[in-house]
């Protein structure tokens, strides 16, 4: 399955979806002009990946900022990952937030409460 890599823009995140190297990451800022068209390839890729996943998937979310429209898309991604986990595959979401950014940490905790996925929280110095 071909990797999907999107370079970061000033209002869009970097996306790496690479099954071969077991690297799944969305990082940076997410407030695209058109959230649907930006994320459609991402949702399509994840959807296709769930048909033939690795035994263990580690997905990194390392966001500086995301708007509320993006938060809806992230939930859609988590829902697809949840199906994997229900099908007996191991899925870990690593949620990274900058050291003083409590709102970002809270947002991750909220997703952890809303899904059955295993979340791990990390902080980094910004």
């Amino acid at each position: 399955m071909a990797a999907l890599k999107i370079e970061p823009g000033d209002d869009t995140p970097m996306v790496i979806l690479d099954k071969e190297h077991n690297k799944f990451e969305i990082s940076g800022k997410s407030m695209p002009a058109d959230v649907r068209s930006f994320y459609q390839p991402v949702l399509d890729w994840v959807s296709a990946y769930t048909d033939d996943p690795l035994d263990k998937t580690i997905f990194d979310f390392k966001l500086i900022y995301f708007n509320t429209s993006s938060s809806k898309i992230f939930l859609d991604i988590f829902m697809m990952l949840e199906e994997l986990s229900e099908a007996g595959k191991e899925v870990l979401v690593r949620w990274h937030s900058a050291e003083p950014d409590e709102d970002m940490q809270d947002a991750g905790e909220e997703y952890a409460e809303m899904t059955e996925l295993q979340f791990e929280f990390h902080t980094y110095e910004f």
């Binding site: 429209s69 809806k72 909220e110 809303m114």
Partner: peptide
């Protein structure tokens, strides 16, 4: 917020009703 995030749909303009 959680209810709207789960049940709401993105509008054609990308609004999620969450703002």
């Amino acid at each position: 917020y959680k209810k709207q995030l789960t049940e709401g749909q993105l509008s054609s303009k990308g609004g999620a009703g969450l703002g």
